[in-house]
Design a binder for these strands. Structure first.
Length: 237
DNA sequence: GATTGATCATAC
DNA sequence: GTATGATCAATC
């Protein structure tokens, strides 16, 4: 992706204010300001919306490891919503550290670190809407509540336990209440070193941790339910 | 219609 | 190939 990029925000408040200034704008407007072309659809540009918002907010380069806003310790996630305010997709969090997973407790897991502080930026995501016509919604700076963290930690223990015992090949996306493990690769022939139940090294398809729709839906629903107590506010536009 | 398993683009 | 950003599309 070519084009310009905003300077990085220096404080969380500045980041949030900048994200709020994006609310109500269309992706075509943001793209024009950054000198970027809008793709006809996302089939061949699946990360385009996320990268566009990264640039608009001055996040670090998209391909580098670590938080999007390194100095602030904040991770940026765009969240595609349907007309009812429900996420259209699950949310990728991080790759599964196949071999190290058995040595990691929830406290030092990549899952906890990635989700410690997240700036959620909702974006209209229905496929029938032309990409450029989609609106950015009101942002939400989030950290897991005690209840949310308890669910995430329990999922980590269960999923990491299965993988740590060499069960990666038998692990399906049905396991986990808030988090699930699914393939994460460029194509089906990609392999990564893992361990089977006997501790023998095997080559397995890389996997990632994803947040279920029900979990992210609850996050956005709560955040817009409170302000909506004043007369009939609805999902962000 | 929702979910799972598969896949796409880009930077280094 | 690895890591970033995710959505697609077959199937349940």
């Amino acid at each position: 992706m070519r084009g310009a990029s905003a300077p990085p925000p220096e404080t969380e408040g500045e980041l949030l204010a900048r994200a709020q200034s994006l609310a109500g704008r269309t992706l075509a407007e943001l793209a024009a300001e950054l000198g970027l072309a809008v793709p006809p659809d996302l089939r061949r540009a699946k990360g385009w919306v996320g990268q566009l918002v990264e640039r608009a907010l001055g996040a670090c380069a998209a391909s580098r490891p670590g938080p999007d806003f390194a100095a602030l310790g904040v991770e940026l996630k765009t969240l595609p919503l349907d007309r009812h305010g429900r996420p259209c997709e699950t949310t990728f969090v991080c790759n599964v550290p196949m071999r190290a997973v058995s040595e990691l407790s929830w406290g030092d897991s990549p899952l906890r670190h990635k989700l410690a502080r997240v700036l959620w930026v909702p974006v209209e995501g229905e496929r029938q809407l032309p990409v450029g016509a989609r609106h950015v919604g009101a942002p939400l700076l989030w950290s897991p509540s005690a209840e949310e963290e308890a669910v995430l930690a329990s999922d980590w223990e269960e999923l990491a336990g299965i993988i740590g015992r060499g069960g990666i090949e038998s692990l399906t996306a049905r396991v986990g209440r808030a988090v699930q493990v699914r393939p994460k690769a460029a194509h089906g022939r990609v392999r990564r070193r893992s361990l089977d139940a006997e501790g023998t090294s095997i080559d397995a398809l890389p996997r990632g941790f994803y947040l279920r729709v029900s979990f992210t839906e609850a996050i956005v629903r709560r955040s817009y339910a409170a302000p909506a107590q004043r007369r009939g506010d609805r999902a962000p536009r």
